[in-house]
């Protein structure tokens, strides 16, 4: 199980580590939204910000690359699907390859955008503890009165408890199946049935025992959980990001190329602030 964990927390004392998880979560959503709609300039700007973030949090870049390694296949598929263009032969990069400059550019931008979204999420996971994320999610769910935050926390805890035991049960059933030559069965429906039914029977039995134990111990939902308020200073970067979002393209144009239009917009923006 542990081998499968690619996005994990790495302890540290940097500014990013200490930044409130709720602000980080909102900032991540904001950055992702900007990236989805952004063109080349915006992607360049946010690539720079990402590198600064990695440097500030004292994380080596190879860690980020290792996190992205599992996505290479998906990115290759996206690139290939975007780059293929069966249009006019005169527009092609190479005469024998059905790829035009336009489709090549579009494919490159798509993959760059995807890699950046993944990299920002990896950075978020690397500098945020799971418990803080859980509390941030509870905080985000609180404004919705129809969502019972405490019960959600209990259920998330139960999932984490069930996961390893269910994986163990699967391994046991698989071994038992192999010893009875169950792995030689060709019919996929039978294979799934022979694996899933024993696992589900055991899991349901365990879940039932747990539910009885919770009832017997008088589990209550009306106990209040205390989540501290967000320090005001922590909200400043999020506010800046949200204010900047509509002008991201022009700002990045100025920062990357120094264009007059971008400079005017930047000055206008600073005056407004």
């Amino acid at each position: 199980m542990a081998r499968g964990i690619s996005f994990r927390y790495l302890p540290g004392g940097s500014i990013l580590h200490r930044w409130d998880a709720r602000c980080k979560l909102v900032a991540l959503c904001g950055v992702t939204t900007i990236l989805v709609h952004g063109a080349g300039g915006v992607l360049g700007l946010f690539s720079g910000i990402l590198l600064v973030g990695m440097w500030v949090s004292n994380l080596p870049c190879r860690l980020l690359l290792r996190n992205l390694r599992g996505w290479v296949v998906l990115m290759t598929v996206v690139f290939a699907a975007q780059a293929l263009d069966m249009g006019e032969q005169a527009m092609r990069l190479v005469s024998w390859l059905p790829v035009s400059w336009v489709s090549f550019d579009a494919a490159l931008l798509s993959v760059w955008r995807l890699a950046l979204i993944l990299a920002y999420s990896a950075l978020f996971s690397l500098v945020t503890r799971a418990r803080d994320v859980q509390e941030a999610l509870l905080w985000l769910l609180r404004p919705f009165p129809f969502l019972p935050a405490r019960r959600i926390a209990l259920m998330m805890g139960l999932v984490m408890r069930f996961l390893p035991s269910t994986l163990d049960a699967v391994e046991e059933v698989k071994l038992a199946n192999r010893s009875r030559l169950g792995d030689q069965v060709r019919n996929p429906l039978k294979r799934i049935k022979h694996l899933a039914i024993p696992v589900l029977r055991r899991a349901l039995g365990r879940a039932d025992e747990l539910a009885v134990a919770l009832v017997a111990r008088g589990y209550r939902e009306d106990l209040k959980s205390v989540i501290p308020p967000i320090p005001l200073l922590h909200t400043a970067p999020v506010a800046l990001l949200l204010v900047m979002a509509p002008f991201a393209e022009e700002l990045s144009g100025f920062l990357l190329t120094g264009s007059q239009e971008g400079l005017d917009l930047l000055l206008n923006f600073l005056q407004r602030i």
Binding site: I5, S6, F7, V36, G70, L118, S121, A122, T128
Partner: peptide, 17 residues
């Protein structure tokens, strides 16, 4: 939350968005 519960053992907001 980042637990590797999505396909291919992935997790995190990245997979959701």
């Amino acid at each position: 939350m980042g637990l590797p519960v999505f396909a291919e053992g992935k997790g995190g907001i990245a997979h959701l968005v």
